[in-house]
Amino acid sequence: MENKTIDQEVKLKPKDFASDQDVRWCPGCGDYSILSQAQKVMPEIGVPKEKIVWVSGIGCSSRFPYYMSTYGFHGIHGRAPAIATGLKLSNPELSVWVATGDGDLMSIGGNHFIHTCRKNIDLNILMFNNEIYGLTKGQYSPTSERGKVTKTTPYGSIDTPFNPISLALGSKATFIARSIDRNPKHLKEVLTKANAHKGTSFIEIYQNCIIFNDGAFDDLSNKETKEDNVLEMKHGEPLVFGKDNNKGIKLDGFTPKVVDLTTGEYSLDDLWVHDEFDESQNRAYILSQFHDNPNLPVPIGVFRQVNSPTLNEELEKQIKFQIEKKGKGNLESLLFSGNTWEVE
């Protein structure tokens, strides 16, 4: 019976996951690409459509659930992880996805984000990072770089931005990855991996805001520059990048160094081999910091994924154990428990 359901679901096409609502993002917005990859992944995850729920907060990214034909909940600013948590705990069989942005998740929702990560609720959190507030029309965000001129920073931002990957690591997220809207193939792979992971999966997706922060990730997506600026991490393989993979990353103690593979001084054997299942967070943390170092390429792919008990499973276990131990709760005995006396 169950197999049959899955067979039916496999037959669904990406377009079966599009709702009947007109998509109202700006033409050319990076969100379109993310929506399209999500709709491609949905038929492949082996979950019947009615068990998939998209939850969001507030912002451009958070209109996402309205464009999916699954169940959806468009929440309030910053609270999507908390709403999704309650939903997952209420029915652990659901596959719960969160669509959020850098303002929604890193600023007003920062507290929910870090606690969701540490509690390891089984959710997939897609953070569309465009490094700007789009829906309020162009103010700097917690991921905008220092010096950025926006409507609220006319003389340049004086804030230090968050590094979302480092933050997720510090919050003990068990699956941490990054992808780019303009690399649909990679994005789809990452989404598929995130879904397969049990626990909180955090995916930072660089997303171009064509109106208020156009070109923020051009270096990472333009044909001429992307090879030198993007490092695609692959598990079990040395970290290489550049045209024809002519460069690599070597780890000197705690310091990552770019080495030239064409001079003969270094070979693939000298390079850092990526282990996304590394129990220790240390190497993933070093990788997360590449973003903040202009001399290093920006890594995409899975930084780290580890198995750890999820809160939703642990809660179910506790309930099951207590029912086995005490028997299914009896209301009459609960009412009449404690120090009672009889008046005759």
Partner: peptide, 30 residues
């Protein structure tokens, strides 16, 4: 303490997550 009554308690990170998790659970049919 009443887990054997199929009671799920969730001590949230703040008051806002307290109510929004409850709203999520209500959407989920609890």
């Amino acid at each position: 303490k009443y887990k054997n009554f199929n009671v799920k308690t969730y001590q949230a990170e703040d008051e806002i997550a307290g109510i929004t998790s409850a709203i999520g659970a209500s959407f989920g049919g609890n």
